[in-house]
Design a protein around this nucleic acid. Sequence first.
DNA 1: ACACAACTCTGTACACCGTAGAGAGAACGT
DNA 2: ACGTTCTCTCTACGGTGTACAGAGTTGTGT
Lengths: 264, 264
Amino acid sequence: MTDADHTGTGDPRRTIELLWGVREKPRRGPKPKLTVEEIVTASIELADTEGISALSVRRGAERLGVSPMTIYTYIPGRAELLDLMIDRVHGELTDPPESHDWRVTMTILAEDAWEMYHRHPWMLQLTTGRLPLGPHTFAKHERELRAVDAIGLTDLEMDAVVAMVNGFVQGIARGSVESASLVRRSGLTDMEWWTASAPVLAEIPEADAGLFPLAARIGQAAGETHGAASAPLHTFRFGLARILDGVEQLVNGDSGSSGVELPS
Amino acid sequence: MTDADHTGTGDPRRTIELLWGVREKPRRGPKPKLTVEEIVTASIELADTEGISALSVRRGAERLGVSPMTIYTYIPGRAELLDLMIDRVHGELTDPPESHDWRVTMTILAEDAWEMYHRHPWMLQLTTGRLPLGPHTFAKHERELRAVDAIGLTDLEMDAVVAMVNGFVQGIARGSVESASLVRRSGLTDMEWWTASAPVLAEIPEADAGLFPLAARIGQAAGETHGAASAPLHTFRFGLARILDGVEQLVNGDSGSSGVELPS
DNA sequence: ACACAACTCTGTACACCGTAGAGAGAACGT
DNA sequence: ACGTTCTCTCTACGGTGTACAGAGTTGTGT
């Protein structure tokens, strides 16, 4: 039981009730010490500061001052807890200001998501696959569709554009977040790690730099400009602009040689 | 110790020597039962069939018919093993046929990577952050840069285009792979899962479908067309074509309103 | 021929994980 | 007052990566 098994496991009814905050009024027993909200809050804090792998039921319970098994009084299991965390964090995202320019709206949404993933890196490990059917997750999707509504795309194109931008943001954010986390964990910046590794590589006769001339040239250029082996924020903004350029072509109906067909 | 802590841990010299297959000729002791290659092969098979979380040192050793600690004779630890697995799999990728059209080359490379991620889903959990400094990983990077060499981009633009496409492919592939894996694990297709969940949602008064009109409409349209809640392959090909359109504009120097500036 | 160094392999141990199951204690309806 | 229902806790199981100590095997130097 590691990460990655969250939504799609467990009783859907119970999960959905938890996501939408439906209480079925228990009256009899002793007063609960905790609420589901407190558990979710504590779990998010733990995941933010120490990573998703440090978020164990035991650690969460310890932080809340109860024994591990107490958590299971409130939540069926770890999978449901992760769903609740995801939906809670999606609630941090808000509607962008009105704009007549869909590119501006899309850019703001993408930048908001980018920042959200950096506040909560563990989201990138959980938001693949089926998303929880919670209110804030629905709202996020609706908001994204609204940004490309009535700009001249078909329903299917709207769907594809939103999915494509989300996939892109997640793909690049993952690299960014992982790189930052490695710096924290290893105490070495990308640059320091590279300058520590390069001499070792140079000792290996098979690893002749002449074999990879472009990688050497471009790596050098990128390193000098960005002061790092990779510049995720730059890649993110550059790539997003390219993607929106491509979407704009589609909207304008002059999408170029988009029909590259493969032999397969 | 879960996943995600691979490269950047451990002694770089030993790791690099393993990656490049440098043997320093030990002669004295008993003949080794195993080779590093065998361990990597068995580990990849295990990760392919049962997922990266099932790939434990114990399971790998069991499959090879040795005791768990024997593995540590060949490899310093799990982190190094993961690096070796990554580089090995990168070696499955080959040079595309020569083409005068960089779009064709880029598309082939992206499709190859797409398929590779589907053969080895665990790669998506490991290839964020620092990549191993192995021969096949270098070759992959060089190949990608060659695809956009001398088409009219600056060094920095080449770097950004390659990073952007890689991030995009990984982002979409992750959703695709995770969705397929959920179908296998839960025994429910996305469609079945949704039709099981929808009635439960309908019972929650707060979850009024009228609150999310676009999501409802587009979800319906996508479902009818693709027969599924999401169509990752379609998103991948559609998105890649948009991205390449955007890059082509950049090459042609008529990149549109790429300069969206944010208040931040 | 023989001792020894170098090497492979293994058993045990530790501190973690998610959670099943049983049961103790508290608060309410009757 | 009593029984029901609920919260909370304890113990236990099978899993993880790997540190450490030691047993067994082989090639080398004398």
